[in-house]
Amino acid sequence: MVLTIDGLTLEFEGLHPLTGVSMSVDDGALAALVGPNGAGKTCVLNCIGGFYTPKAGRIRFGGAMIQGLAPHRIAARGIARTFQFVELFRGMSVLDNILLGRHRHMRSGLLAGGIFWGRSRREETLHRRRVEEIIEFLELERYRTELVASLPFGVQKLVAIGRALAMEPTLLLLDEPSTGMNREEKENLARFLLRIKHDLRTTMLWVEHDMELVGDLADTVTVLDFGRKIAEGPPAEVLRDPLVAEAYLGRAYVRERGAG
């Protein structure tokens, strides 16, 4: 188990986005986290990433409890994430954005960077090489020096994945990577997700709305509804679960279809 979540409960002044959610992600797995809008999927990612502090529950990652740690400390332990609305560094090039993913692997501080001689200079070229590998991996070569703000949304999503991959994470959290992508871009994304899983062997927790993609790619699926876990297991089983269909489509619709 790379990640184990136990009884995760989140509360904001009377709202209960998450109630007693438990789940785990196997080493090397592509684990999907699905649910209707407002089910609490992104809240789970924000708790893991340290952006929210859960009211109760434990998050165990790599043998240590990480709930309540600051986001940059969690990132330093090897958890990378992408955001639903990309959240790139808009004033910077694709190259610089991905180089920022290398931040935790680099050492030079302000003085060394300001002098830019010897070790800090070598460090920059060394990590530039790693960034180029990622650019090649995600087929972003033609956008290398473009400002990210000028790129199409689908490409920005890939740059965000590239930035996260540059961190060489043990666990990659993906927040709806396919949102806003067209059919072709989604097919590319599916290809990249499989390559991340098989070539890089990075464990992924993947929040997704596109059930076709989840059904085809995910190893396991966890379903949330109103902040509670309602199903988990292999996608073929979970997506047939009547409870899941009910959560997505509403009870009346399911009963009607079941009768007809």
């Binding site: 990433g49 952006f51 959240e87 004033g91 910077m92």
Partner: peptide, 17 residues
């Protein structure tokens, strides 16, 4: 670069460590 990251998007800067 870390400074520019904070300038552009603080939450993302935290997420890269």
């Amino acid at each position: 670069r870390a400074w520019m990251a904070i300038r552009d998007r603080e939450i993302a800067a935290e997420s890269v460590g």
